[in-house]
Design a protein around this nucleic acid. Structure first.
Length: 501
RNA sequence: UCCUCGGUAGCUCAGCGGUAGAGCAUGCGGCUGUUAACCGCAGGGUCGUAGGUUCGAAUCCUACCCGGGGAGCCA
Protein backbone atom coordinates (compact mmCIF):
# COMPACT_ATOMS: atom_id res chain seq x y z
CA UNK A 1 0.00 0.00 0.00
CA UNK A 2 1.24 3.49 -0.75
CA UNK A 3 0.69 6.16 1.85
CA UNK A 4 0.31 9.86 1.23
CA UNK A 5 2.52 10.59 4.20
CA UNK A 6 5.80 9.51 5.76
CA UNK A 7 6.43 8.10 9.24
CA UNK A 8 8.97 9.85 11.44
CA UNK A 9 10.89 6.62 11.97
CA UNK A 10 11.48 6.47 8.18
CA UNK A 11 12.86 10.00 7.78
CA UNK A 12 16.44 8.85 7.19
CA UNK A 13 15.38 7.55 3.77
CA UNK A 14 13.98 10.96 2.84
CA UNK A 15 16.84 13.31 3.72
CA UNK A 16 16.85 16.22 1.33
CA UNK A 17 13.36 15.40 0.06
CA UNK A 18 10.01 17.01 0.75
CA UNK A 19 7.59 14.82 2.72
CA UNK A 20 4.34 15.12 4.63
CA UNK A 21 4.13 14.05 8.28
CA UNK A 22 0.82 13.42 10.04
CA UNK A 23 0.53 13.37 13.79
CA UNK A 24 -0.15 15.23 16.98
CA UNK A 25 1.51 18.27 18.52
CA UNK A 26 3.68 17.02 21.38
CA UNK A 27 5.08 20.40 22.34
CA UNK A 28 5.61 23.84 20.84
CA UNK A 29 8.21 26.58 21.26
CA UNK A 30 8.45 29.82 19.41
CA UNK A 31 9.55 33.37 19.06
CA UNK A 32 8.65 36.20 16.68
CA UNK A 33 7.89 34.83 13.22
CA UNK A 34 9.12 31.34 14.15
CA UNK A 35 7.62 28.20 15.66
CA UNK A 36 9.17 24.89 16.55
CA UNK A 37 6.44 22.25 16.46
CA UNK A 38 7.40 18.94 18.05
CA UNK A 39 5.27 16.43 16.15
CA UNK A 40 4.48 12.94 17.44
CA UNK A 41 3.18 10.26 15.08
CA UNK A 42 3.53 7.08 17.14
CA UNK A 43 6.81 6.10 15.48
CA UNK A 44 8.83 8.96 16.96
CA UNK A 45 9.17 12.69 17.48
CA UNK A 46 10.25 15.28 14.93
CA UNK A 47 10.87 19.00 15.29
CA UNK A 48 9.11 20.93 12.52
CA UNK A 49 10.36 24.48 11.91
CA UNK A 50 7.82 27.02 10.67
CA UNK A 51 9.12 30.44 9.54
CA UNK A 52 6.41 33.01 9.01
CA UNK A 53 8.02 34.36 5.85
CA UNK A 54 8.32 30.95 4.22
CA UNK A 55 4.75 29.63 4.47
CA UNK A 56 1.32 30.87 3.37
CA UNK A 57 -1.00 32.61 5.82
CA UNK A 58 -3.17 29.54 6.39
CA UNK A 59 -0.11 27.45 7.33
CA UNK A 60 1.17 30.15 9.68
CA UNK A 61 -2.25 30.40 11.33
CA UNK A 62 -2.30 26.61 11.73
CA UNK A 63 1.08 26.65 13.47
CA UNK A 64 0.11 29.67 15.54
CA UNK A 65 -3.17 28.22 16.79
CA UNK A 66 -2.13 24.57 17.23
CA UNK A 67 -2.40 23.57 20.89
CA UNK A 68 -0.85 20.57 22.63
CA UNK A 69 -2.15 17.30 21.06
CA UNK A 70 -3.80 19.07 18.13
CA UNK A 71 -3.72 16.88 15.00
CA UNK A 72 -1.59 18.22 12.14
CA UNK A 73 -0.41 17.42 8.65
CA UNK A 74 2.93 19.08 8.00
CA UNK A 75 4.80 19.18 4.70
CA UNK A 76 8.42 20.22 4.39
CA UNK A 77 12.04 19.49 3.59
CA UNK A 78 13.85 16.82 5.63
CA UNK A 79 17.16 18.04 7.04
CA UNK A 80 19.68 16.16 9.15
CA UNK A 81 20.30 17.93 12.46
CA UNK A 82 22.31 16.21 15.15
CA UNK A 83 20.82 18.33 17.91
CA UNK A 84 17.31 16.95 17.36
CA UNK A 85 15.55 13.87 18.72
CA UNK A 86 15.74 11.33 15.94
CA UNK A 87 18.48 13.27 14.19
CA UNK A 88 16.24 15.07 11.67
CA UNK A 89 14.03 18.12 11.46
CA UNK A 90 11.47 19.31 8.96
CA UNK A 91 11.70 22.78 7.37
CA UNK A 92 8.00 23.37 6.88
CA UNK A 93 6.50 24.64 3.62
CA UNK A 94 2.86 23.90 4.47
CA UNK A 95 0.94 23.07 7.64
CA UNK A 96 -2.67 21.99 7.99
CA UNK A 97 -4.62 21.79 11.23
CA UNK A 98 -6.67 18.56 11.15
CA UNK A 99 -8.16 19.03 14.59
CA UNK A 100 -7.69 21.75 17.15
CA UNK A 101 -7.34 20.03 20.54
CA UNK A 102 -9.09 21.36 23.62
CA UNK A 103 -6.94 22.19 26.60
CA UNK A 104 -4.94 19.01 27.19
CA UNK A 105 -4.90 17.79 30.79
CA UNK A 106 -1.44 16.19 30.78
CA UNK A 107 1.04 19.04 30.66
CA UNK A 108 4.79 18.73 30.08
CA UNK A 109 5.31 18.98 33.84
CA UNK A 110 5.15 16.17 36.37
CA UNK A 111 1.86 14.68 37.56
CA UNK A 112 0.71 12.46 40.40
CA UNK A 113 0.04 8.79 39.81
CA UNK A 114 -3.68 8.98 40.58
CA UNK A 115 -4.20 11.71 38.01
CA UNK A 116 -2.17 9.85 35.41
CA UNK A 117 -4.02 6.58 36.05
CA UNK A 118 -7.35 8.37 35.64
CA UNK A 119 -6.07 9.66 32.31
CA UNK A 120 -4.43 6.42 31.21
CA UNK A 121 -6.13 6.70 27.80
CA UNK A 122 -4.19 9.92 27.23
CA UNK A 123 -1.12 9.06 29.29
CA UNK A 124 -0.31 6.35 26.71
CA UNK A 125 0.67 9.18 24.34
CA UNK A 126 3.60 10.25 26.52
CA UNK A 127 7.13 9.40 25.53
CA UNK A 128 7.78 7.15 28.51
CA UNK A 129 4.64 5.07 27.94
CA UNK A 130 5.46 4.92 24.23
CA UNK A 131 8.82 3.38 25.14
CA UNK A 132 7.35 0.85 27.59
CA UNK A 133 4.63 -0.29 25.17
CA UNK A 134 7.20 -0.80 22.44
CA UNK A 135 9.34 -2.92 24.75
CA UNK A 136 6.24 -4.92 25.68
CA UNK A 137 5.55 -5.46 21.99
CA UNK A 138 9.14 -6.56 21.41
CA UNK A 139 8.99 -9.01 24.34
CA UNK A 140 5.71 -10.50 23.08
CA UNK A 141 7.12 -11.02 19.59
CA UNK A 142 10.34 -12.52 21.01
CA UNK A 143 8.34 -15.05 23.00
CA UNK A 144 6.31 -16.08 19.96
CA UNK A 145 9.47 -16.22 17.87
CA UNK A 146 11.32 -18.32 20.44
CA UNK A 147 8.60 -20.97 20.67
CA UNK A 148 7.48 -20.94 17.05
CA UNK A 149 11.00 -21.34 15.71
CA UNK A 150 11.40 -24.63 17.54
CA UNK A 151 8.01 -26.03 16.62
CA UNK A 152 5.85 -25.25 19.67
CA UNK A 153 2.17 -24.79 18.84
CA UNK A 154 0.40 -21.80 20.35
CA UNK A 155 -2.92 -22.97 21.81
CA UNK A 156 -5.47 -21.09 23.88
CA UNK A 157 -6.70 -22.28 27.25
CA UNK A 158 -10.24 -21.23 28.15
CA UNK A 159 -10.71 -17.96 30.00
CA UNK A 160 -14.06 -18.99 31.51
CA UNK A 161 -13.78 -22.04 33.71
CA UNK A 162 -16.54 -23.96 35.39
CA UNK A 163 -14.80 -25.15 38.48
CA UNK A 164 -12.50 -23.72 41.06
CA UNK A 165 -9.20 -25.54 41.07
CA UNK A 166 -7.40 -24.04 44.03
CA UNK A 167 -10.20 -22.58 46.13
CA UNK A 168 -12.46 -19.68 45.24
CA UNK A 169 -10.90 -16.95 47.38
CA UNK A 170 -8.74 -15.53 44.61
CA UNK A 171 -11.12 -16.25 41.74
CA UNK A 172 -13.45 -13.83 40.04
CA UNK A 173 -16.87 -15.41 40.13
CA UNK A 174 -19.71 -14.70 37.74
CA UNK A 175 -23.16 -15.94 36.81
CA UNK A 176 -23.07 -18.29 33.85
CA UNK A 177 -26.68 -18.92 32.90
CA UNK A 178 -27.91 -21.03 35.84
CA UNK A 179 -24.54 -21.90 37.26
CA UNK A 180 -21.32 -20.23 38.38
CA UNK A 181 -18.27 -19.58 36.26
CA UNK A 182 -14.84 -18.23 37.10
CA UNK A 183 -12.20 -16.29 35.23
CA UNK A 184 -9.11 -18.42 34.76
CA UNK A 185 -6.19 -18.21 37.18
CA UNK A 186 -3.94 -20.38 35.05
CA UNK A 187 -4.21 -22.33 31.82
CA UNK A 188 -1.89 -25.01 33.07
CA UNK A 189 -4.22 -28.00 33.46
CA UNK A 190 -5.68 -27.41 30.01
CA UNK A 191 -2.14 -26.84 28.77
CA UNK A 192 -1.24 -30.37 29.88
CA UNK A 193 -4.15 -31.77 27.87
CA UNK A 194 -3.04 -29.80 24.82
CA UNK A 195 0.58 -30.95 25.21
CA UNK A 196 -0.60 -34.56 25.17
CA UNK A 197 -2.27 -33.80 21.83
CA UNK A 198 0.44 -31.68 20.19
CA UNK A 199 3.71 -32.53 21.95
CA UNK A 200 4.87 -29.03 22.81
CA UNK A 201 2.50 -26.09 23.18
CA UNK A 202 2.35 -22.69 24.80
CA UNK A 203 -0.58 -20.58 25.85
CA UNK A 204 -0.51 -16.79 25.66
CA UNK A 205 -3.40 -15.07 27.30
CA UNK A 206 -4.89 -13.10 30.13
CA UNK A 207 -5.11 -14.45 33.68
CA UNK A 208 -7.16 -13.17 36.59
CA UNK A 209 -6.48 -13.16 40.31
CA UNK A 210 -8.89 -11.62 42.79
CA UNK A 211 -6.08 -11.12 45.30
CA UNK A 212 -6.48 -8.11 47.54
CA UNK A 213 -2.90 -7.12 46.92
CA UNK A 214 -1.85 -3.51 46.59
CA UNK A 215 1.78 -3.78 45.66
CA UNK A 216 4.02 -2.81 42.79
CA UNK A 217 4.12 -6.46 41.68
CA UNK A 218 0.40 -7.22 41.36
CA UNK A 219 -2.45 -6.76 38.92
CA UNK A 220 -5.85 -8.46 38.97
CA UNK A 221 -5.63 -9.00 35.19
CA UNK A 222 -2.27 -9.90 33.70
CA UNK A 223 -0.84 -11.83 30.78
CA UNK A 224 0.83 -15.16 31.21
CA UNK A 225 2.74 -17.40 28.83
CA UNK A 226 2.55 -21.07 29.77
CA UNK A 227 4.56 -23.59 27.75
CA UNK A 228 3.85 -27.26 28.42
CA UNK A 229 6.07 -29.99 27.00
CA UNK A 230 5.57 -33.73 26.80
CA UNK A 231 8.69 -35.78 27.55
CA UNK A 232 10.49 -32.87 29.26
CA UNK A 233 11.95 -33.33 32.73
CA UNK A 234 12.80 -30.60 35.24
CA UNK A 235 16.35 -30.03 33.96
CA UNK A 236 15.14 -29.63 30.36
CA UNK A 237 12.48 -27.20 31.53
CA UNK A 238 14.95 -25.04 33.42
CA UNK A 239 17.12 -25.02 30.30
CA UNK A 240 14.14 -23.95 28.16
CA UNK A 241 13.19 -21.12 30.53
CA UNK A 242 16.78 -19.90 30.57
CA UNK A 243 17.11 -19.92 26.78
CA UNK A 244 13.79 -18.09 26.45
CA UNK A 245 14.81 -15.32 28.86
CA UNK A 246 18.24 -14.95 27.26
CA UNK A 247 16.52 -14.56 23.90
CA UNK A 248 13.98 -12.01 25.19
CA UNK A 249 16.66 -9.83 26.77
CA UNK A 250 19.00 -10.02 23.77
CA UNK A 251 16.18 -9.01 21.40
CA UNK A 252 15.20 -6.08 23.62
CA UNK A 253 18.79 -4.85 23.85
CA UNK A 254 19.24 -5.12 20.08
CA UNK A 255 15.91 -3.62 18.99
CA UNK A 256 14.87 -1.28 21.80
CA UNK A 257 17.99 0.75 22.56
CA UNK A 258 16.13 4.04 22.01
CA UNK A 259 13.24 2.92 24.21
CA UNK A 260 15.55 1.81 27.03
CA UNK A 261 17.39 5.12 26.78
CA UNK A 262 14.12 7.06 27.08
CA UNK A 263 13.39 5.01 30.21
CA UNK A 264 16.86 5.72 31.62
CA UNK A 265 17.47 1.97 31.93
CA UNK A 266 21.04 1.02 32.85
CA UNK A 267 21.55 -1.77 30.31
CA UNK A 268 24.65 -3.27 31.98
CA UNK A 269 22.63 -5.67 34.18
CA UNK A 270 20.66 -6.78 31.09
CA UNK A 271 23.84 -7.38 29.11
CA UNK A 272 24.98 -9.75 31.85
CA UNK A 273 21.75 -11.77 31.57
CA UNK A 274 23.34 -14.53 29.50
CA UNK A 275 23.39 -18.23 30.25
CA UNK A 276 24.01 -20.27 32.15
CA UNK A 277 21.89 -18.92 34.99
CA UNK A 278 23.05 -20.14 38.40
CA UNK A 279 20.86 -23.00 39.61
CA UNK A 280 20.45 -23.64 43.29
CA UNK A 281 18.20 -25.95 45.18
CA UNK A 282 15.77 -24.58 47.71
CA UNK A 283 17.98 -26.00 50.44
CA UNK A 284 21.05 -24.24 49.04
CA UNK A 285 19.04 -21.02 48.76
CA UNK A 286 18.01 -21.28 52.42
CA UNK A 287 21.64 -21.82 53.45
CA UNK A 288 22.69 -18.81 51.39
CA UNK A 289 19.92 -16.69 52.89
CA UNK A 290 21.06 -17.49 56.43
CA UNK A 291 24.78 -17.26 55.67
CA UNK A 292 27.46 -14.84 56.88
CA UNK A 293 27.74 -13.74 53.24
CA UNK A 294 24.20 -12.40 53.39
CA UNK A 295 24.88 -10.61 56.67
CA UNK A 296 28.03 -9.05 55.23
CA UNK A 297 26.17 -8.02 52.07
CA UNK A 298 23.39 -6.35 54.04
CA UNK A 299 25.92 -4.49 56.20
CA UNK A 300 27.78 -3.27 53.10
CA UNK A 301 24.55 -2.23 51.43
CA UNK A 302 23.52 -0.20 54.45
CA UNK A 303 26.93 1.48 54.58
CA UNK A 304 26.65 2.37 50.87
CA UNK A 305 23.16 3.78 51.39
CA UNK A 306 24.32 5.87 54.35
CA UNK A 307 27.17 7.25 52.23
CA UNK A 308 24.77 8.16 49.45
CA UNK A 309 22.47 9.78 51.98
CA UNK A 310 25.36 11.96 53.23
CA UNK A 311 26.36 12.92 49.69
CA UNK A 312 22.80 13.95 48.82
CA UNK A 313 22.45 15.94 52.02
CA UNK A 314 25.70 17.76 51.21
CA UNK A 315 24.51 18.56 47.67
CA UNK A 316 21.30 19.87 49.11
CA UNK A 317 23.06 22.20 51.55
CA UNK A 318 25.28 23.43 48.73
CA UNK A 319 22.23 24.11 46.51
CA UNK A 320 20.51 26.03 49.29
CA UNK A 321 23.59 28.21 49.73
CA UNK A 322 23.70 29.07 46.01
CA UNK A 323 19.91 29.44 45.63
CA UNK A 324 19.82 33.11 46.64
CA UNK A 325 22.03 34.39 43.79
CA UNK A 326 20.76 31.90 41.20
CA UNK A 327 18.99 33.08 38.07
CA UNK A 328 15.34 32.12 37.68
CA UNK A 329 15.97 29.24 35.26
CA UNK A 330 18.74 27.97 37.53
CA UNK A 331 16.30 28.01 40.41
CA UNK A 332 13.92 25.90 38.33
CA UNK A 333 16.67 23.36 37.71
CA UNK A 334 17.54 23.36 41.39
CA UNK A 335 13.89 22.93 42.35
CA UNK A 336 13.65 19.93 40.02
CA UNK A 337 16.86 18.49 41.46
CA UNK A 338 15.53 19.09 44.96
CA UNK A 339 12.52 16.90 44.14
CA UNK A 340 14.84 14.15 42.81
CA UNK A 341 16.98 14.35 45.93
CA UNK A 342 13.93 14.21 48.15
CA UNK A 343 12.53 11.18 46.30
CA UNK A 344 15.85 9.35 46.50
CA UNK A 345 16.28 10.22 50.18
CA UNK A 346 12.82 8.85 50.93
CA UNK A 347 13.78 5.65 49.08
CA UNK A 348 17.01 5.36 51.01
CA UNK A 349 15.28 5.92 54.33
CA UNK A 350 12.75 3.23 53.49
CA UNK A 351 15.53 0.81 52.52
CA UNK A 352 17.50 1.60 55.66
CA UNK A 353 14.37 0.86 57.69
CA UNK A 354 13.69 -2.34 55.73
CA UNK A 355 17.14 -3.93 55.62
CA UNK A 356 17.43 -4.78 59.34
CA UNK A 357 13.93 -6.24 59.19
CA UNK A 358 14.81 -8.28 56.14
CA UNK A 359 17.93 -9.51 57.86
CA UNK A 360 15.94 -10.49 60.94
CA UNK A 361 13.39 -12.29 58.80
CA UNK A 362 16.21 -14.12 56.98
CA UNK A 363 17.81 -15.14 60.28
CA UNK A 364 14.50 -16.48 61.50
CA UNK A 365 13.80 -18.36 58.27
CA UNK A 366 13.23 -22.08 58.72
CA UNK A 367 13.58 -24.81 56.12
CA UNK A 368 10.12 -25.77 54.96
CA UNK A 369 8.47 -22.39 54.59
CA UNK A 370 8.10 -20.40 51.39
CA UNK A 371 10.33 -17.43 50.62
CA UNK A 372 8.81 -14.00 51.19
CA UNK A 373 9.53 -11.06 48.90
CA UNK A 374 12.42 -9.85 51.02
CA UNK A 375 14.01 -13.32 51.14
CA UNK A 376 13.91 -13.53 47.35
CA UNK A 377 15.48 -10.10 47.09
CA UNK A 378 18.34 -10.95 49.46
CA UNK A 379 19.05 -14.19 47.57
CA UNK A 380 19.09 -12.50 44.16
CA UNK A 381 21.43 -9.74 45.40
CA UNK A 382 24.17 -12.37 45.55
CA UNK A 383 24.04 -12.76 41.76
CA UNK A 384 24.44 -10.49 38.74
CA UNK A 385 21.96 -12.35 36.52
CA UNK A 386 18.71 -14.31 36.84
CA UNK A 387 18.89 -17.41 39.00
CA UNK A 388 16.86 -20.60 39.09
CA UNK A 389 15.76 -22.07 42.41
CA UNK A 390 14.43 -25.64 42.28
CA UNK A 391 13.29 -28.61 44.40
CA UNK A 392 11.05 -26.99 47.01
CA UNK A 393 9.43 -28.61 50.04
CA UNK A 394 6.28 -30.17 48.65
CA UNK A 395 4.03 -28.80 51.42
CA UNK A 396 3.67 -25.33 49.93
CA UNK A 397 3.66 -26.38 46.27
CA UNK A 398 0.71 -27.33 44.08
CA UNK A 399 -0.84 -30.80 44.24
CA UNK A 400 0.10 -31.67 40.64
CA UNK A 401 3.87 -31.35 41.10
CA UNK A 402 5.99 -34.46 40.76
CA UNK A 403 7.92 -35.55 43.86
CA UNK A 404 11.71 -35.74 43.76
CA UNK A 405 12.48 -39.49 43.41
CA UNK A 406 15.55 -38.92 45.62
CA UNK A 407 13.64 -37.16 48.41
CA UNK A 408 9.91 -37.47 48.86
CA UNK A 409 9.73 -34.24 50.87
CA UNK A 410 10.68 -32.25 47.77
CA UNK A 411 8.60 -31.25 44.75
CA UNK A 412 10.23 -30.89 41.34
CA UNK A 413 9.29 -27.24 41.00
CA UNK A 414 11.43 -24.33 39.85
CA UNK A 415 11.27 -20.54 39.96
CA UNK A 416 13.32 -18.08 37.94
CA UNK A 417 14.16 -14.99 39.97
CA UNK A 418 15.13 -11.84 38.09
CA UNK A 419 18.09 -9.82 39.44
CA UNK A 420 18.05 -6.28 40.90
CA UNK A 421 15.26 -7.19 43.29
CA UNK A 422 12.68 -7.86 40.56
CA UNK A 423 12.02 -11.36 41.88
CA UNK A 424 9.93 -14.19 40.53
CA UNK A 425 9.08 -13.98 36.84
CA UNK A 426 8.79 -17.70 36.07
CA UNK A 427 7.27 -20.52 38.11
CA UNK A 428 6.85 -24.12 37.02
CA UNK A 429 8.18 -27.64 37.16
CA UNK A 430 7.67 -31.27 36.35
CA UNK A 431 4.13 -32.64 36.66
CA UNK A 432 3.10 -35.79 38.49
CA UNK A 433 2.24 -38.64 36.11
CA UNK A 434 0.84 -41.30 38.42
CA UNK A 435 -2.95 -41.48 38.67
CA UNK A 436 -3.11 -42.94 42.17
CA UNK A 437 -0.68 -40.31 43.48
CA UNK A 438 -2.72 -37.47 41.97
CA UNK A 439 -5.98 -38.86 43.34
CA UNK A 440 -4.39 -39.02 46.80
CA UNK A 441 -3.04 -35.46 46.43
CA UNK A 442 -6.44 -34.06 45.45
CA UNK A 443 -7.95 -35.64 48.54
CA UNK A 444 -5.20 -34.40 50.86
CA UNK A 445 -5.51 -30.86 49.51
CA UNK A 446 -9.25 -30.98 50.14
CA UNK A 447 -10.06 -30.34 46.48
CA UNK A 448 -13.32 -31.44 44.82
CA UNK A 449 -12.51 -34.70 43.00
CA UNK A 450 -15.24 -34.39 40.38
CA UNK A 451 -13.53 -31.30 38.96
CA UNK A 452 -10.51 -33.36 37.98
CA UNK A 453 -12.21 -36.17 36.12
CA UNK A 454 -10.99 -34.99 32.75
CA UNK A 455 -7.55 -34.16 34.13
CA UNK A 456 -7.19 -37.67 35.54
CA UNK A 457 -7.95 -39.03 32.06
CA UNK A 458 -4.59 -37.63 30.96
CA UNK A 459 -3.00 -40.14 33.36
CA UNK A 460 -5.14 -42.99 32.03
CA UNK A 461 -4.37 -42.71 28.35
CA UNK A 462 -0.65 -42.59 27.68
CA UNK A 463 0.64 -40.76 30.73
CA UNK A 464 4.17 -39.49 30.08
CA UNK A 465 6.74 -37.36 31.91
CA UNK A 466 5.97 -33.72 31.14
CA UNK A 467 6.75 -30.28 32.42
CA UNK A 468 5.90 -26.64 31.96
CA UNK A 469 6.04 -23.20 33.47
CA UNK A 470 4.32 -19.84 33.53
CA UNK A 471 6.01 -16.56 32.61
CA UNK A 472 4.48 -13.32 33.86
CA UNK A 473 4.59 -10.89 30.93
CA UNK A 474 4.21 -7.69 32.95
CA UNK A 475 6.84 -8.69 35.50
CA UNK A 476 9.25 -9.51 32.70
CA UNK A 477 8.66 -6.16 30.99
CA UNK A 478 9.00 -4.36 34.33
CA UNK A 479 12.42 -5.93 34.83
CA UNK A 480 13.65 -5.24 31.28
CA UNK A 481 12.47 -1.63 31.45
CA UNK A 482 13.87 -1.20 34.97
CA UNK A 483 10.56 0.16 36.27
CA UNK A 484 9.53 0.69 39.86
CA UNK A 485 5.96 -0.51 39.33
CA UNK A 486 4.42 -3.02 36.90
CA UNK A 487 1.21 -1.05 36.34
CA UNK A 488 2.90 0.93 33.54
CA UNK A 489 3.66 -2.21 31.51
CA UNK A 490 0.07 -2.95 30.44
CA UNK A 491 -2.04 -0.49 28.41
CA UNK A 492 -4.97 -0.46 30.83
CA UNK A 493 -3.99 -1.88 34.22
CA UNK A 494 -6.63 -3.50 36.40
CA UNK A 495 -5.89 -3.32 40.10
CA UNK A 496 -7.75 -3.83 43.35
CA UNK A 497 -9.69 -0.61 43.00
CA UNK A 498 -9.25 0.47 39.45
CA UNK A 499 -11.44 -0.57 36.54
CA UNK A 500 -11.25 2.77 34.79
CA UNK A 501 -10.50 3.86 32.11
C1' U B 1 -7.72 -7.94 56.21
C1' C B 2 -3.72 -5.13 58.65
C1' C B 3 0.09 -1.08 58.97
C1' U B 4 1.48 3.75 57.01
C1' C B 5 1.20 8.44 54.22
C1' G B 6 -1.85 11.84 51.73
C1' G B 7 -6.57 14.77 49.63
C1' U B 8 -5.60 23.23 48.89
C1' A B 9 -6.43 26.59 41.36
C1' G B 10 -6.97 22.31 35.29
C1' C B 11 -1.85 19.87 37.10
C1' U B 12 2.37 19.54 40.85
C1' C B 13 2.78 21.46 45.50
C1' A B 14 3.75 25.35 49.65
C1' G B 15 0.91 27.40 53.65
C1' C B 16 -0.17 23.96 59.53
C1' G B 17 -4.94 29.00 64.42
C1' G B 18 -5.37 35.52 62.28
C1' U B 19 -6.87 38.88 54.52
C1' A B 20 -5.84 31.82 49.91
C1' G B 21 0.02 31.42 47.58
C1' A B 22 3.99 29.73 43.72
C1' G B 23 5.46 27.13 39.26
C1' C B 24 3.31 24.81 35.07
C1' A B 25 -1.17 24.82 31.89
C1' U B 26 -4.78 28.62 29.65
C1' G B 27 -5.60 33.89 27.45
C1' C B 28 -3.15 38.48 25.85
C1' G B 29 1.56 41.02 24.77
C1' G B 30 7.14 40.68 23.65
C1' C B 31 11.37 38.01 21.46
C1' U B 32 13.92 35.09 14.07
C1' G B 33 17.08 28.68 16.34
C1' U B 34 14.21 27.02 20.61
C1' U B 35 15.43 21.93 23.36
C1' A B 36 10.40 20.68 29.99
C1' A B 37 12.68 27.80 25.71
C1' C B 38 12.50 32.61 27.93
C1' C B 39 10.34 37.70 29.67
C1' G B 40 5.77 40.72 31.14
C1' C B 41 0.44 41.03 32.33
C1' A B 42 -4.33 38.63 33.33
C1' G B 43 -8.25 35.20 34.58
C1' G B 44 -8.71 30.98 37.63
C1' G B 45 -10.47 28.32 44.70
C1' U B 46 -17.42 25.89 48.89
C1' C B 47 -8.86 24.12 50.96
C1' G B 48 -12.24 15.60 50.02
C1' U B 49 -17.33 15.23 52.90
C1' A B 50 -20.03 15.82 57.55
C1' G B 51 -19.85 17.19 62.48
C1' G B 52 -17.10 19.45 66.66
C1' U B 53 -13.47 22.89 69.54
C1' U B 54 -12.54 28.36 69.03
C1' C B 55 -13.82 35.37 69.00
C1' G B 56 -11.69 33.23 64.52
C1' A B 57 -10.26 26.68 61.22
C1' A B 58 -7.12 25.01 54.94
C1' U B 59 -4.57 24.68 59.76
C1' C B 60 -6.70 21.42 65.97
C1' C B 61 -10.28 16.97 67.18
C1' U B 62 -13.87 12.90 65.55
C1' A B 63 -16.22 10.00 61.84
C1' C B 64 -16.73 8.78 56.86
C1' C B 65 -15.24 8.77 51.55
C1' C B 66 -11.26 8.55 47.91
C1' G B 67 -6.20 7.61 46.61
C1' G B 68 -0.68 6.31 47.22
C1' G B 69 2.99 3.02 49.50
C1' G B 70 3.88 -1.55 52.16
C1' A B 71 2.65 -6.65 54.57
C1' G B 72 0.33 -11.45 53.70
C1' C B 73 -0.34 -14.24 48.79
C1' C B 74 1.41 -14.73 44.17
C1' A B 75 3.27 -14.29 38.01
Amino acid sequence: MTLDHTYISELAASEGKTVTLKGWLHNKRGSKGLYFLILRDGTGLCQCVVNEGEVDDASWTAADSATQESALAVTGLVRADERQVGGFELQVTRAELIHQAEEYPITPKEHGIDFLMNHRHLWLRSRRQWAIMRVRNRVIMSIHGFFQEQGFIQMDAPILTGNAVEGTSTLFEMDYFDTKAYLTQSGQLHGEAMAMAMGRIYTFGPTFRAEKSKTRRHLTEFWMIEPEMAFYDLAMTMQLAEEMLVRIVADALRDCSEELEVLGRDTAPLERATGPFPRLTYTEAVDLLKSDDTRRMVTEKMAALTDEQDALAAERTDNKARYGQAKKWEKRKMDAREIDIQTRLTDIEEQLRNLPRWQASADAFEWGSDFGGSDETLITWHYDRPIIVHRFPQEFKAFYMKRDPDNDRLALGMDVLAPEGYGEIVGGGERATDLAFLQRQVKEHGLPEEVFTWYFDLRRYGSVPHSGYGLGLERTVTWICGLHHLRETIPFPRTLDRLYP
